[in-house]
C-alpha cells in the first residue's frame, strides 16, 4: 500500500504522537545507555566487559540461548508437524498449551520448577539436579522460548499442499528425501524466523533463570542477571557495558538472520541453466 501525502493538521498530530512515543520508549533508553557507558571513554567499557565474571555470564547466556534454540528448532518442527498434519484426541488442548509460555510470567515458571524439583519438591528424587543448576536453567529457557518456532512454522506448513509431496513420491523420492528436498526448503524461512525470535527471547530472559538458577555469581549468573547485580552494586559502568554488549549482539543476530532470509528466488535466478 502507498502512503498518502500528508496535507492536514490531524495526520501531522498523529505522526508527532508516534515519533514522540517511539522516541521516548525506544530511542531515549538507547541514548542513555550508550552515553552512560562511554562517559569516561572506551577504556572502562572494555575493562568492564572483559572482567572474568562478565565473560562467564556472557558465556552462560550464549550457551543457554544457543542450546535452547537448537532444542526448540528440532522439537518445534516436530510439534508443528504433528499439530498440522495429524489428528488425535485432545489436539486442540495441546495446540492451546503451546501458547502457555506467552502468558505465564517467567518468574512463575522458575518458581514452579523449584517447587517441583527443589529439596522438598514432589520430584526431588529426579535423577538430574534441576534446581539451582545449569540443567534447570536450560529447561526454563527452553520453556519460555518454546512457542516461537512452532508458531512460525505451523502456518507455512499448513499452507503447503500435500500434492507437492505426493508428486515427489510418484517420482520415486522417499519420505525423508521428500521432506529434505521439498518440504524443508518451503518452510525454511519460517524455521529461521522462529529461531531468531527464540534466540532473542532466550538471550534476554531474566526472571525464570534468576529464580531457578539463584543467580550465583560466576556459576548460574547470566548476562541479564549480571546487569541486575551490577545495578545493585552501584557498578554502573558494568551494567551499561553489558547492556550495550547484549544490544549489539541482538542487532547482529537480526542482521545475520535477515541476510539468511533473503528471497529464495534470488538464489534460483543464479542457477545455471542445465540446458545451456
Amino acid at each position: 500500500m502507498r502512503e498518502k501525502p500528508v496535507r492536514t493538521f490531524w495526520p501531522w498530530l498523529l505522526i508527532a504522537v508516534v515519533v514522540v512515543y517511539a522516541g521516548l520508549l525506544l530511542l531515549a533508553p538507547l541514548v542513555a545507555v550508550i552515553s552512560g557507558a562511554f562517559e569516561d571513554g572506551i577504556q572502562p567499557v572494555l575493562e568492564a566487559i572483559t572482567a572474568a565474571e562478565a565473560l562467564l555470564s556472557l558465556r552462560l547466556t550464549f550457551f543457554l540461548a544457543i542450546t535452547a534454540s537448537v532444542i526448540n528448532a528440532i522439537l518445534g518442527l516436530i510439534v508443528a508437524w504433528v499439530l498440522v498434519r495429524h489428528r488425535f484426541p485432545g489436539k486442540w488442548f495441546f495446540n492451546a498449551l503451546v501458547d502457555l509460555p506467552f502468558v505465564v510470567s517467567p518468574v512463575i515458571v522458575g518458581y514452579v520448577m523449584i517447587v517441583l524439583f527443589g529439596r522438598t519438591g514432589w520430584l526431588q528424587n529426579f535423577p538430574i539436579q534441576l534446581a539451582f543448576s545449569l540443567p534447570g536453567m536450560l529447561v526454563v529457557t527452553v520453556f519460555v522460548s518454546l512457542p516461537f518456532v512452532i508458531r512460525e512454522v505451523m502456518p507455512v506448513l499448513a499452507s503447503l499442499t500435500r500434492e507437492q509431496e505426493e508428486a515427489a513420491f510418484t517420482l520415486g523420492a522417499s519420505s525423508w528425501m521428500t521432506f529434505y528436498r521439498i518440504v524443508f526448503p518451503a518452510i525454511r524461512h519460517g524455521i529461521i524466523y522462529g529461531i531468531v525470535l527464540t534466540l532473542a527471547r532466550a538471550l534476554g530472559e531474566f526472571g525464570a533463570v534468576a529464580v531457578i538458577g539463584g543467580g550465583v555469581q560466576g556459576v548460574t549468573e547470566t548476562a541479564t542477571i549480571y546487569i541486575y547485580r551490577s545495578l545493585h552494586d552501584r557498578n554502573d559502568i558494568g551494567a551499561y557495558s553489558m547492556a550495550i554488549t547484549l544490544g549489539v549482539i541482538s542487532v547482529g543476530i537480526l542482521v545475520v538472520m535477515n541476510w539468511l532470509r533473503r528471497d529464495p528466488s534470488e538464489k534460483g535466478s543464479q542457477h545455471v541453466d542445465p540446458t545451456e
Binding site: 499442499t161 500434492e163 505426493e166 510418484t170 521439498i182 518451503a186 529464495p264 534460483g268 541453466d273
Partner: peptide
C-alpha cells in the same frame, strides 16, 4: 508404494516444486 510403481502423475494444480526452476 507410489515410489515403486513406475508411474508418472500430473496433478490438477500443477504442484510444481516452487523453489526449483522448471528445469530443476
Amino acid at each position: 508404494s507410489p515410489q515403486k510403481r513406475g508411474i508418472g502423475f500430473v496433478f490438477q494444480n500443477y504442484s510444481l516444486f516452487q523453489h526449483m526452476t522448471a528445469a530443476q
